[in-house]
Simulated assay, not measured.
Amino acid sequence: MSAPQHGATWSAAVSATLHCLTGCAIGEVLGMVIGTAFGWSNAPTIVISILLAFVFGYALTMRGVLRAGVSFRAAVRVALAADTVSILVMELVDNAVLVVVPGALDAGLASWLFWLSLAFALAVAFVVTVPVNKWMIGRGRGHAVVHEYHH
C-alpha cells in the first residue's frame, strides 16, 4: 500500500518551494550585505546568510500560522516541521553552487558576477528542492502541516 497523498501535486510543491525560496533569498542577501559591510571573509558571511535564511523562512511561515490564531509556541513547531528540510536542502545546494562559481563570493555586492551567481544558485536550489517538497507533502510532512492553517 502506498502512503496517502496530501495534495502532493507539482503545483503544491512549487508553491511550497517558492515560499522557501523567498525566505532563503531574503536571508542570503541580508547576510551578504552584513558580511560585506563588516568586511567579513567568506566563511562567516556564508554562516550568517544561512542563519538568516532559516530565520526568514521560519518567520514567513509563522506569520501566516499566527494569523490563523495559533499560539506562538505552536507556530514555531509548525514552522520547524514545515520548513526545516526544505530550507536545509535549498541552503546546501545554493551555497554549494556559490562556492564553486569562480570568484562569485569575492565579487562583492556591486558586481554583476555576484548577483548573477546568486540568482543562478537560487534557481538551481529551487529546481532541486521542488521534488523534495513534493515527496514530503505526499507523506503529510513539510508544507502539508501548514495547510490546515490556510484559509
Score class of each variant (00 low, 15 high):
Arg141Asn: 12
Thr129Glu: 11
Asp94Pro: 07
Leu21Asp: 14
Tyr58Trp: 06
Thr129His: 09
Gln5Glu: 15
Thr84His: 00
Cys24Ala: 08
Trp135Cys: 10
Thr22Ala: 15
Ala75Tyr: 02
Trp112Asn: 12
Ser117Gln: 06
Asp94Phe: 07
Thr84Val: 06
Thr17Asn: 11
Ala3Ile: 08
Val145Tyr: 13
Ser41Trp: 07
Phe120Asn: 07
Val85His: 01
Phe56Lys: 00
Ser15Thr: 15
Leu80Val: 10
Arg67Tyr: 00
Ile34Lys: 01
Leu66Arg: 13
Pro102Glu: 02
Val128Glu: 13
Val93Cys: 06
Val70His: 09
Leu88Ala: 15
Val89Phe: 12
Ile46Asn: 04
Asn42Thr: 15
Val47Thr: 12
Arg77Glu: 15
Gly35Cys: 02
Val132Asn: 04
Ala81Glu: 09
Phe120Pro: 05
Leu98Asn: 05
Phe72Glu: 04
His6Ala: 02
Val132Gln: 07
Val146Leu: 13
Gly35Ala: 08
Val47Trp: 09
Arg73Cys: 06
Arg73Ala: 15
Val76Tyr: 00
Ala79Gln: 05
Leu109Ala: 02
Gly140Gln: 08
Glu91Pro: 01
Val100Tyr: 00
Gly140Thr: 13
Ala144Thr: 09
Phe38Cys: 08
Val99Ser: 07
Ser86Glu: 05
Trp112Lys: 12
Pro44Asp: 06
Asp106Thr: 11
Val127Pro: 01
Leu109Asn: 02
Ile48Gly: 03
Ala8Ile: 12
Val70Leu: 04
Arg63Ser: 11
Pro102Ala: 00
Ala16Pro: 14
His143Asp: 15
Gly7Leu: 07
Phe120Lys: 03
Ala16Gln: 07
Val85Ser: 09
Val124Met: 03
Ala68Ile: 06
Val65Ala: 03
Gly69Ile: 05
Arg63Met: 03
Leu116Ile: 13
Ala74Asn: 12
Ile48Tyr: 07
Asn42Cys: 11
Ala96Trp: 00
Val99Thr: 07
Thr36Ile: 05
Ala59Ser: 10
Phe38His: 08
Glu28Leu: 14
Tyr149Ser: 01
Leu116Val: 14
Arg141Met: 15
Pro102Asn: 00
Pro102Cys: 00
Ala110Pro: 04
Val93Glu: 06
Gly23Pro: 00
Arg141Cys: 07
Ser86Cys: 12
Ala3Cys: 05
Cys24Asn: 05
Asp94His: 05
Ser111Asn: 10
Gly27Ser: 07
Thr36Asp: 14
Gly39Thr: 11
Leu51Glu: 04
His151Thr: 05
Val146Glu: 14
Leu51Ala: 12
Ser71Ile: 06
Val76Asp: 03
Ala75Thr: 02
Ala16Met: 09
Val132Tyr: 11
Thr61Leu: 03
Gly27Phe: 03
Ala96His: 00
Trp10Ala: 11
Arg141Asp: 14
Cys24Gly: 08
Cys20His: 10
Ala3Tyr: 13
Val76Leu: 09
Arg67Ile: 00
Asn42Gln: 14
Val100Gly: 00
Ile50Gln: 01
Val55Ala: 12
Pro131Lys: 06
Asn42Asp: 15
Trp112Gln: 11
Ala16Tyr: 11
Thr129Lys: 08
Thr129Ser: 12
Phe126Gly: 10
His147Cys: 13
Ala110Ser: 13
Val89Ala: 13
Leu18Gly: 10
Ala96Glu: 04
Ser15His: 13
Met136Ala: 14
Gly142Thr: 09
Ala53Pro: 01
His150Phe: 11
Leu66Tyr: 02
Arg67Lys: 10
Val47Arg: 05
Val70Met: 07
Phe38Asp: 08
